[in-house]
Design a protein around this nucleic acid. Structure first.
Length: 492
RNA sequence: GGCGCUAUCGUCUAGGGGUUAGGACGUGAGAUUCUCAAUCUCAAAACCCGGGUUCGAUUCCCGGUAGCGCUACCA
């Protein structure tokens, strides 16, 4: 039995698209599951649109997702001679012929047909040129492309592993170009040659290639080669059911990375877009996916990319991430937000870890740590106007917070129980509900209406910071009712 | 236009000739409470339409419709 070999073959004309990422994932899962080989190939035969740095970016994204390849990356741009040799062989065998029609001429014919509402396909203008005709054209210095000679009758069919039997009449195919007039191969030639040379047994790719498949099968046959198995994957759509594109927002893996999405969350989410494991489980590690993956279970219909579900899944992974993995991620996040301090790694390490742990349970992505978690890492934060409106409307709060500051300053020990007892007894003495004081203090300590439990916040921040921030808030509140209000950051 | 493919809650999907058509995200209500998140309970929410086949179709077949894809010297 030949070993199973699959490939992922992106073209470096953009960053790794989430659709491409899912294709890569399914290839990877299939390879692992079948103990096969996962080949990576960069399809950069379009010299105008391909960019080397994008190839590198794609590699980086793949690695970030944890989809490591066993072979490659191969670059088609380095195999040009091979494609030309195969093309020559096809031409010698009469399976392909030179076409002298210029791009302009063809374009004109196409437009004319469109204007007359006629279907257009290449009219075979150069299909039956004699050797003398060809010699003459060449003598005139006309460049030629090489076209594949599609059989006039009959049909090509194949058994797609997800879509089932698909059949296409040859009369619906045109004599497609194999070699451009500049001598570079087109996609059809290079995929087939590569899939052949790289002994690919299963071609797993997007459903946008279904229509191309019969052409490629014809090429395999013209080359006397075995035809690989095909499995096409339904497309990923935007919320408007159009193919997912920049118009819909982020489409690249790197964009989600920048949004603070975890790779395992993105992979898990992508896996479920078109595939359900037999046990219906939704939260799956790569290992579990490998265990249960099968191409037959892949859905046939296109799927809408639901960012809400991705967000949920990300928070799910984030909440369960071990601290050892989370800490370096947060360090990077704080660094890019300008909030990182070296002390977090040594002197204040314990406080830093407590802060991260506290924030972890309600964060939806990595950005949240520098966003709503800001007050845990710096004294420079602002009072959210909404929070002020909601919890600081009672005028007695200035006095209450000041009183709280004074009591907490002397409190010993300063822990979960003592701080809570301290606050509640103060509230009772002053005849206010504890909630008023708690919420008011929360805004004072974090600047926000939404934050972790107050006493956890206090013990994490530490006695000094808590007392200072309460003083500061009390001052802010008094000044606010006075004629000239001062911003909280400046007043410190 | 031609050709191809697809069609179950708003979204991702399970299921399959007889089911209260199941789950997840999201949404709504409630519990909890110190705000939010988490958690728990409950709720609303779907088989595109029309013909067949059949005792019985959401399921099988055909047609329609809609959506998507391809229709390049892009991949």
């Amino acid at each position: 039995m030949e070993p199973i070999r699959v490939r992922f073959a992106p073209s470096p004309t953009g960053y790794l698209h989430v659709g491409g990422a899912r294709t890569a994932l399914y290839n990877w899962l299939f390879a692992r599951r079948e103990r096969g080989v996962f080949v990576l190939r960069i399809e950069d035969t379009d010299v105008d649109r391909s960019r080397p740095e994008l190839a590198q970016a794609i590699l980086d994204s793949l690695k970030w997702l944890g989809l490591h390849w066993d072979e490659g990356p191969y670059f088609q741009s380095q195999r040009l001679d091979r494609y030309r040799a195969v093309a020559a062989r096809l031409e010698d065998a009469g399976a392909a012929y030179p076409c002298f029609c210029s791009a302009d001429e063809l374009q004109q014919k196409r437009e004319r047909a469109a204007a007359e509402h006629r279907a257009w396909k290449y009219d075979g203008h150069c299909r039956n040129l004699s050797d003398a005709d060809r010699a003459r054209q060449r003598a005139e210095g006309r460049a030629s492309a090489l076209r594949f000679r599609v059989p006039e009758s009959g049909a090509t069919s194949f058994d797609d592993q997800v879509f089932g039997s698909i059949k296409l009449a040859h009369s619906d195919l045109e004599d497609f170009v194999l070699l451009r007039s500049d001598g570079n191969p087109t996609y059809h030639l290079s995929v087939v040659v590569d899939d052949l040379d790289m002994k690919i047994t299963h071609v797993i790719r997007g459903a946008d290639h279904i229509s191309n498949t019969p052409k490629q099968i014809l090429l395999f046959q013209a080359l006397d080669a075995a035809v690989p198995n095909f499995a096409h994957l339904p497309l990923i759509l935007g919320p408007d059911r159009q193919r997912l594109s920049k118009r819909h927002g982020a489409t690249s893996v790197s964009a989600y990375q920048e949004q603070g999405i975890l790779p395992e969350a993105l992979v898990n989410f992508l896996a479920l877009l078109g595939w359900t494991p037999p046990n219906q489980k939704e939260l799956l590690s790569l290992e579990e996916m490998v265990e249960m993956f099968s191409i037959e279970a892949v859905s046939k219909s296109n799927a809408v990319f639901d960012t809400e579900k991705l967000a949920w899944m990300n928070s799910e992974y984030l909440r369960h991430l071990p601290l050892s993995r989370l800490l370096p991620l947060i360090q990077r996040e704080l660094e890019s937000a300008g909030l990182w301090q070296t002390a977090f790694a040594d002197k204040e390490r314990e406080k830093f870890e407590k802060s991260v742990t506290l924030l972890q349970s309600r964060a939806r992505n990595l950005k949240d740590f520098s966003g709503f978690g800001r007050a845990f890492f710096t004294d420079h934060f602002e009072y959210d106007p909404e929070a002020v409106k909601k919890f600081w409307k009672d005028p007695v709060l200035a006095d209450l917070l000041e009183a709280l500051a004074q009591r907490l300053e002397k409190l010993l020990p300063f822990d979960l129980e003592s701080t809570e007892k301290c606050l509640r007894s103060l509230a009772e003495e002053k005849g206010v509900k504890a909630g008023v004081l708690i919420n008011g203090a929360r805004v004072a300590l974090t600047g926000q209406a939404v934050a972790p439990g107050l006493f956890e916040v206090m013990t994490t921040l530490g006695q000094d910071a808590v007392v200072n921030r309460l003083h500061r808030a009390a001052r802010f509140l008094t000044e606010q009712t006075a004629p000239h209000s001062v911003s909280p950051v400046d007043s410190h």
